[in-house]
Design a protein around this nucleic acid. Structure first.
Lengths: 220, 220
DNA sequence: ATATTTCATATTGGATCCAATTTACAATAT
DNA sequence: ATATTGTAAATTGGATCCAATATGAAATAT
């Protein structure tokens, strides 16, 4: 007898579903800085009890996406200018190294996938898919490195600044510049020039840093 | 009327207490790789119910210290050789940069504190306080940078390899070498030579990396 | 009017109970 | 003997209930 195997373990637990939903809502800006997360309300929204909600919230806290106070509950955490700067510095340190080590291992498929994300990105109009495709582009390239720990940590850093990045790239028309820079990075990868890809990635990040800080100081 | 203010919020929640206790137990090696964490058993140990235990476990999972499978429970996660290598690579990338930025901000007190940890370290005999003082030494120096995000991430990386580092530094008599290297790092900080401190930190880490990998391949 | 106190409500943290699933083992068949 | 099936115990995930604390508004005092 032969039967197609179906992965039944995909049926995620309630707490994971709530966790992912809240995570998305926060990084996409649907839940904004300071917004309180009422366990009861969220539980009702997901047709579940407060137990999985609390588990989700405690995991979000480990990710740095919410802050909780005993008996007071959780609020979506924001970023001070200093904290934002620091995360950009961190990315500017780690991501170039990751892509440097990824370049020698990039397959044709990796490069094709990245180009697809980049192409879709350059044509996207709304900031939401824009942000997603931007992340996809970099992520696909980084993944070739096989450095899972680094990838996880980069994801975490991105989770924290995603909102600000996107909001800010709508204001200043950084779309074109980001687009050009993506092309440059992709080309360097295509040429197998790891050092150049790293340097361009570094500039891509420090450029975004400066532009974000500019906007932040204008706003406040 | 004047009254001394006492911070009553320090009375931590049960889940935090369980989390910290389990975290310590794992990084200190009391709970070894693959060891299953039975919610009921842990709950009894801490005179509490399974709810806070589950919260603690889910937080530990975010930290990468345990792995859980639905309906099967959590086990202490180990490190493959590849993963250990990667974490050392990560540290060798991040920590030199942090100390480089910390040096210009180090106060007399910071340096004194670090020297105390180092002195105590060089005289410690049991591996447990050894590990703690080693971490203290580096941590005190890094903290002068004020880079909280970097510090948190370094802590997480240390949590994951702490066990292996310690176990391994008992075997090979790396104590003396670590001691010398600590002296070198401290001296560079004292001299305000940020680049040298960074370079010595990098060598300190890559040295530990090589020595650990040596031992791992000997063992298996 | 302002400040303080009281008290009801809302909210969180934790305990207990129930359902879903796994695991271990005995019973059965080949 | 080995493999398969059935079943009870163990274990986890989630729901409901209770206790501790915070919040906010009314009542009282200055």
């Amino acid at each position: 007898m032969k039967l197609k195997s179906v992965d039944i373990s995909k049926t995620a637990s309630a707490s994971s579903i709530v966790f992912e939903a809240l995570r998305r809502a926060i990084i996409e800006g649907d839940l904004t800085e300071g917004e309180p997360l009422r366990q009861d309300e969220i539980a009702r929204l997901f047709n579940t009890s407060r137990i999985p909600v609390r588990e989700a919230i405690s995991r979000l806290e480990e990710h740095g996406l919410v802050k909780t106070q005993r008996y007071k509950g959780a609020v979506v955490s924001g970023l001070s200018v200093t904290e934002a700067e620091e995360i950009f510095d961190f990315r500017a340190l780690v991501e170039p190294e990751v892509i440097r080590r990824a370049v020698p291992q990039m397959s044709q498929e990796t490069l094709a996938q990245a180009r697809d994300s980049w192409a879709a990105f350059s044509e996207a109009d709304d900031p939401m898919t824009w942000g997603e495709l931007n992340r996809d582009f970099h992520s696909v390239l980084y993944q070739a490195s096989g450095l899972q720990y680094h990838l996880d940590i980069i994801d975490n850093a991105m989770d924290r600044i995603d909102r600000y990045l996107r909001a800010q790239l709508v204001l200043s028309n950084g779309m074109e510049r980001a687009n050009e820079e993506h092309m440059g990075i992709w080309q360097a990868c295509m040429d197998g020039n790891a050092e150049l890809a790293a340097e361009r990635t570094r500039q891509h990040i420090t450029g975004a840093r400066e532009s974000l800080l500019q906007n932040l100081s204008n706003l406040r």
